[in-house]
Each structure stands twice: as structure tokens, then as C-alpha cells.
Design a binder for these strands. Sequence first.
DNA 1: AAATGTTACTTGCAATTAGCAAGTAAGAAA
DNA 2: TTTCTTACTTGCTAATTGCAAGTAACATTT
Lengths: 166, 166
Amino acid sequence: MSVSLEIFGDRWSLLIVRDLMVRGHRAYKEFLGSGEGIATNVLADRLRALEAAGIITTEAKEKDGRRVNYRLTEKGIDLAPVLLELLLWGAKHEETGAPCEIMAHMAANRAAVLAETRRRWSERDPAPLLPPFQSNPEDAQHRPPISKGSKSSRTKSKQPKGGSKP
Amino acid sequence: MSVSLEIFGDRWSLLIVRDLMVRGHRAYKEFLGSGEGIATNVLADRLRALEAAGIITTEAKEKDGRRVNYRLTEKGIDLAPVLLELLLWGAKHEETGAPCEIMAHMAANRAAVLAETRRRWSERDPAPLLPPFQSNPEDAQHRPPISKGSKSSRTKSKQPKGGSKP
DNA sequence: AAATGTTACTTGCAATTAGCAAGTAAGAAA
DNA sequence: TTTCTTACTTGCTAATTGCAAGTAACATTT
């Protein structure tokens, strides 16, 4: 466990993995604008570290030569149970903005949620499994039930406090 | 999740929780000598933060007035699934010194392991569930199979590299 | 083709945090 | 009464983080 925590024992690494896994993030700027505001140098550093640890890969492909595609490896997608338990723990014990019907469903159907997560990964399904939940529901614009996402068309607002935090 | 990672999104907090949960740690110096070598000021800070987050409690009781007893709260013991998945992930993907029969057993019997962990917590069972695994097996002195521990009678060797890391 | 915009980063610097060694106060043991 | 233990704190240095401002490579617009 201490070896594992050397890799993602920090504020950001697991959030990056979560963004890859449950939101549909592929590109650098998507992580940058991802709610909680990681600094760009730290993001670059974490992506490098995650790649070095074999948790993500970076493919510079696609027709647009600027863009880089980040993707989870098998080792990375195997973190899904950890992320799920962390999400459920947070939903139970901290006030996240996560709707409790969804959380109850995920808690009762862990295996199905994990299977769906892995399916989305292997099929490169780009739709987010979960949207970014808002802490204060009045500024949530449209929240789909599950796996039918608002395509993450988020403005680049900085959200200095009380931002999204599933 | 980002709220949760604000609490234990660092190198040490989850290791402290693990020491409380699966090794039998109660006292300050036990954490200090716990293999991976946390600095004393950082340990004091993390214990304070974990207490503030409601994950552990500190009782200054016991007949010896110097000693402080650290203990997981319900919220803290609810982290068991997260820790278990992290342990299993590490055993699968990183070379921890964890014997793979034990890991296979835990992977196949998650519910039983979690039930036993919670039982030990509620009954204040002080015996370690898992010993500190060694990376290089030649300096492992005696490794019990499961939940029948070597009472953590460890020398206070500093283990500067390649130490114990379940 | 030139100018402008995008994307994925660096670089430099201030502020926070981690790590180390050395204390110290309260209590217990010799 | 001295010495030992335990759970810390304090001071200092080194590393890490966060912010703002670049920059190189490509793409798009005019």
C-alpha cells in the first residue's frame, strides 16, 4: 500500500484517474478546467508520473496534431473499485453534491457499475458515466440520471470555492 | 471525491488509517516506527487532521497517564473497503511483499474480510489482522498466516529503503 | 500567406509543506 | 531523586505546490 500511495498519494492523481474513468476526459485542457482547479505545471507533472507508473498512456494521435489523448491502461482501469469505494464513502460521510438515489444504486450494484465502467473503457465510450456534481444545486444546469451525459460542455469558470466534487 | 482527497490525499493519512485498521496500532510511537518512517511533526499534524475530520479519536485514558489511545471512528472504519481495494490493487500491480495466497483469499472473500475487520474494531481486538509484509523475504523474521499475529513485537529499525509495505 | 487562435506544455518565483534534528513537559520506573 | 518513556513542539532546510507568464507546434481564419 505504501508503494501505491507513492504513486497517487497526493491531492490530484486520483482525481485525474477519476476524470479519465467516469467523466469523459481525454485532453489536457479538460483536466485543467475540471472543477477543482489544478495548476498546469502540477497537472503536467502528475500526467508524467502516472504514465511512468503505467497507469495512463499518452497517444499524440488524432487528426489534430496538437492534441494528445490520455487514456487509462489496464492497470489504471483496475483502480475502478478503489475509486468506487472512495466515491461511496465520500457520499456517505462528506457532503458531496451527489444525489443519494444514484449513490444508493451504485452501492447496491457495485459489480454492475464496475462492469459498465470497464465496458466503457474497452469500447472507448466517450460519454461520461457521471457528471460533475454540484455542491449547491442552484447552479447545476442540467443533470442527467446516469451514463447519458451533458457532454461536459462546461464553461471555464474557476469556481474558487464550493465547486463540483464527486 | 475531491472533498475526501482533501482529507487523506497525501502520502501518510491512509497509511495511518491502515495501521489502525489492520495492524494493531494505538500509540504514537507505533506509528512512528511503522516501517516507512513518517516524520514526527508530520505525524502529529496528520493525527490532528484525521481527528478534526472525524476519522479517528484520541483518548488519553489507560492507567499510564502519558499514553494516548488513537482509535478509528465509525467513519474511519468505513474506509475499510477503500483500503482493501487499494491493498488488492497494489498486490496485483505493484510488487508488494504480500504473499499471493493471502491476497487471493482476500480477493475471493472481500465480505468476510470486511466483516472480520469491523468485528475486530468493535470488539477492540488488538491483534493485527495483517503483519507488515517485507519486500525482500530474507529479512522477514516470522510471518503468520492470517489474523494470528506476531503481536507486532518489532524492533525499531529505521528501514531506510525497501521496507515493509502492505 | 500572414495573422490569429488553440493546445500542451515550460519557466520563474513566492508561498506552503515535508523532512530532520533537537528540544520539552508530563508522567512513570528505578 | 534521578532516569526513562511518551507524546509531542520548535527551528531550520529542502522540496513541493500554486500562480502568472511565457513558448513551440500546429490549426484556423482572413
